[in-house]
Computed example of a mutant assay.
Amino acid sequence: MNVLVWHVHGSWTTSFVQGGHDYLIPTVRDRGPWGVGRPAAWDWPAGAVETSPERLAEADIDIVVLQRPEELELVEHWCGRRPGQDVAAVYVEHNTPRGPAAISRHPLADRDDIPIVHVTDFNQLMWDNGRAPTLVVPHGIVDPGERYTGELDRAAVVINEPVRRWRVTGTDLLPGFSTAAGIDVFGMGLGGLVERLAETPDPPAEGAVRAIDDLPQRRLHDEMTRRRLYLHPMRWTSLGLSLLEAMQLGMPVVALACTEASVAVPPEAGVVSTSVARLHRAVAELVADPDRASEMGRAARKAALAEYGLPAFLRRWDDVLGRLR
Rank of each mutant, 00 (worst) to 15 (best):
V158W: 00
G35N: 06
A88H: 03
H139N: 14
L310E: 08
R218T: 13
Y91V: 06
E161F: 08
L249R: 02
V283T: 03
V272E: 00
A269I: 02
R82C: 13
A257T: 03
S273H: 03
G99F: 13
L241S: 04
L190A: 09
G99L: 15
S52E: 13
L193P: 01
G176D: 12
V119E: 09
T259I: 06
V5H: 11
A57N: 11
S262L: 11
S242D: 00
P204H: 03
L197G: 00
R235F: 05
A132N: 09
Q124G: 14
Q248V: 04
R278P: 00
M296G: 03
R281S: 14
P290G: 10
V283M: 02
R68A: 13
D289C: 05
L135M: 15
E76I: 06
E260D: 14
R301S: 06
G99D: 14
R228I: 02
T14A: 15
R235Y: 04
V271E: 01
I25M: 08
L108S: 11
M234Y: 10
D153F: 03
E54R: 12
D153A: 15
R323P: 02
G250F: 01
G80K: 07
F186I: 04
S273N: 02
I159C: 02
E285C: 01
A312N: 12
E199D: 15
R98V: 14
T51N: 06
D143Y: 12
V163H: 01
V194M: 09
D43Q: 12
L74M: 13
D112L: 08
A299F: 02
R82L: 15
W127D: 09
M224I: 12
E161D: 14
G187S: 05
M234S: 15
L243V: 07
M126W: 15
A303L: 03
T27D: 01
T274I: 09
E93K: 05
Q248W: 04
V65F: 08
P203L: 12
P97S: 10
R196V: 10
V283I: 12
G297H: 03
P266N: 01
